[in-house]
Amino acid sequence: MAEKLYIDALREGLREEMQRDQSVFLLGEDIGIYGGAFGVTRGLIDEFGEERVVDTPISEQAITGIAVGAAVAGMRPVVEIMFFDFLTLSMDQLINQGAKIRYMFGGKAKVPMVIRAPMGCGTGAAAQHSQSFPGVFAHFPGLKVVIPSTPHDVKGLIKAAIRDDNPVVFAEHKLLYRVKGEVPEEDYVLPLGKADIKRKGRDITIVAGSIMVIRALEAAKELEKEGIDVEVIDPRTLKPLDMRTIIDSVKKTGRVLIVEDDPLSFGWGAEVAAGIAGSEAFDYLDAPVKRLGGLDIPIPYNPNLERHAVPQVENIVEAVRELLR
């Protein structure tokens, strides 16, 4: 297996699906010669041409709606929205159209589209270019939501998202683009709705998604020095959510910390906590379920404030210690 950057693995996934299926095409702002604001689509225009790597005007609602229409008419569009924050501009077409069309039409239409966007803070981009809120989309029936954390996962999951016959929101944390990891050479697709045990452990379960998986694994390394054996579960997709794997892990460890990059209030971690509380894992809990998430504030600009707006490794370490006290 070769070591690859997350961004390169993602691009490889896009490229392979475009090679495999002529109906797959990319649509978004500055994704052509510029290669996308973060470089995800760099070089794809050379291989597939401007017909399949389509630069659009700055018109997020139309771009999203055009993807919906193209999908209903038999294509498989993959939209890039330049920043996750800008998905608010896509909302009507994504929620009222894309997500609802199949059900509204009695199950007689399908909308196979992916809408990808870079999210998260840590780059000094301030409030309108830094928020993570994939959990919001998990609230809407008809959508699937993917939050890949590693190069291996991002490639397998983008391929699954493209092959899926439903609208999929694909949330890429910006700080993950430069993370390296092993990526198999062979063709592989990961299922949507299957969590992954990123680290096996006995003493406590950390459920973390996206960038928080990386931080949870670092925290686990720290805690190992203190003799604490952490299990890290990455749900990988928020919708469908694989509660089974989480419940089984909590039954084993008896303690759980849920860590997300979304603002804590009403975040997806609450859904996970409720799922645990309502399951047989409840009887195995030796401590209350604990959650970490972003503060309930817009992301601030100042680097020190920004760092404190979302959970860091030390917060996770401290929370685990508290749970085991």
């Binding site: 771009i63 229409g69 294509m75 159209q97 069309i101």
Partner: peptide, 20 residues
């Protein structure tokens, strides 16, 4: 491709169908 409860909601969808 459907009636639409959102005023103007069908306009980009038609545009996308035409792109297809």
């Amino acid at each position: 491709l459907g009636a639409n409860g959102i005023v103007g909601g069908g306009i980009p969808i038609a545009t996308g169908a035409a792109l297809a």
